[in-house]
Design a protein around this nucleic acid. Structure first.
Lengths: 202, 202
DNA sequence: CGAAGATAATTGGTCGCCCAATCAAAAAAG
DNA sequence: CTTTTTTGATTGGGCGACCAATTATCTTCG
């Protein structure tokens, strides 16, 4: 490795990516600076050149994973144009597929949950993501309400329900892959959400 | 501490309870044998007399937490007699209250999730709990279907939806207590489940 | 243009700490 | 006096952090 000027931000990002790979492979409790350095193909010392300590790397890793999840979910939903129903279904499908097909990201994310319980900084990064996601889902629901395809409801609470359902089912899918298939889970989650938002038949 | 004969099982249980308290206080990554011994008021050496290694203690801890959650949920639901609606609502309320009021248990449980990703034994303990809980919820739903208060549906999938919703909302409640109050969450979750299971109005 | 110094990037070794696990010996109970 | 239970010191190893030395790049100025 020959030192090049001006590549600091790239190196930083590479270290973070290596960290995420390590977390996905060996878990939170198996993460060491040595392994991260090895995975990134750099020396151990350099980790402390770019990050104050191990915790700073972990914070950066959570920020990266969080931003990535955010982007993927937003993208999946926006691809579907203006139909609120289609947007919501795409969002649900994207979340569930993520948990199975992009295992690495989802695993790392779940691993952080445990640590968040004892680390305010991590907890706040996550709380911000969830607030943003609820706002996104809420906006889609609100659009559906305005255009009359969904019933009138408190959109933020509805968003909490939908997000919770997706997370909870993703967990079940992750812990026991024999319980359901992704396609199946997508179907019954979508069905549940559509029933939940369906207009009253009066 | 004076050694008494025949108290082996009690000592074991005390060590496990101390472990759970430690996990709740300092988290998974902060758990050390020294801390557990101190919390249990015994010497470090004795931990290895009752358990092969640290991992065995953790497995026992997860089994205990799991059994406890199982029991609490089952109890809350069975207290409500025969009305499927009341039983289901009691179950939902119990789960959400647990996540907030019995923080220690819920925190420890979430902490294990991360480790389960890399530990088959832990994962299987959890998978068994979830399968059991789904069966329990499924049975309540089935009863409601038979007695005509719920629509006809695949009860195991409905159970996955209900359990997922409760877990997911519990998580949101834990990570960001400012987002919702427990009572509020209980209300909108119950509402969502009742809408989900409501008979079609034809 | 090109040497020389300053600066940025990188290395690998070292340090002290704390960990899980082990064990010989003691203490209590049968 | 044997067996079960408990102790606390020890051991070997791996950890995160630190740092002096090295290399590469940029800047300055003769």
């Amino acid at each position: 490795m020959s030192p090049k000027r001006g590549v600091a931000p790239l190196r930083r990002a590479e270290i973070v990516r290596a960290t995420i790979r390590c977390l996905a492979r060996d878990g939170y409790s198996g993460l060491t600076m040595k392994k991260v350095a090895r995975e990134a193909g750099v020396s151990q010392g350099i980790l402390h050149y770019y990050f104050a300590d191990k915790r700073a790397i972990l914070v950066a890793a959570l920020e990266t994973v969080t931003a990535d999840l955010d982007q993927r979910v937003a993208a999946a939903q926006s691809r579907e144009g203006r139909d609120p129903r289609a947007r919501l279904l795409a969002l649900i499908a994207a979340c569930l597929r993520l948990a199975v097909e992009e295992r690495a990201f989802w695993i790392v994310f779940v691993e952080f949950w445990g640590e968040m319980m004892h680390d305010r900084a991590l907890r706040e990064i996550n709380a911000a993501l969830y607030a943003r996601t609820r706002r996104l889902i809420g906006a889609v629901v609100a659009q559906g309400v305005r255009s009359g395809v969904f019933r009138r409801t408190d959109v933020l609470r509805a968003a909490a329900v939908i997000l919770g359902l997706v997370d909870g089912v993703s967990l079940q899918l992750t812990f026991d892959p024999t319980a359901f298939r992704v396609a199946e889970a997508t179907r019954f989650c979508s069905d549940a959400v559509m029933r939940y938002l369906a207009r009253e038949v009066s």
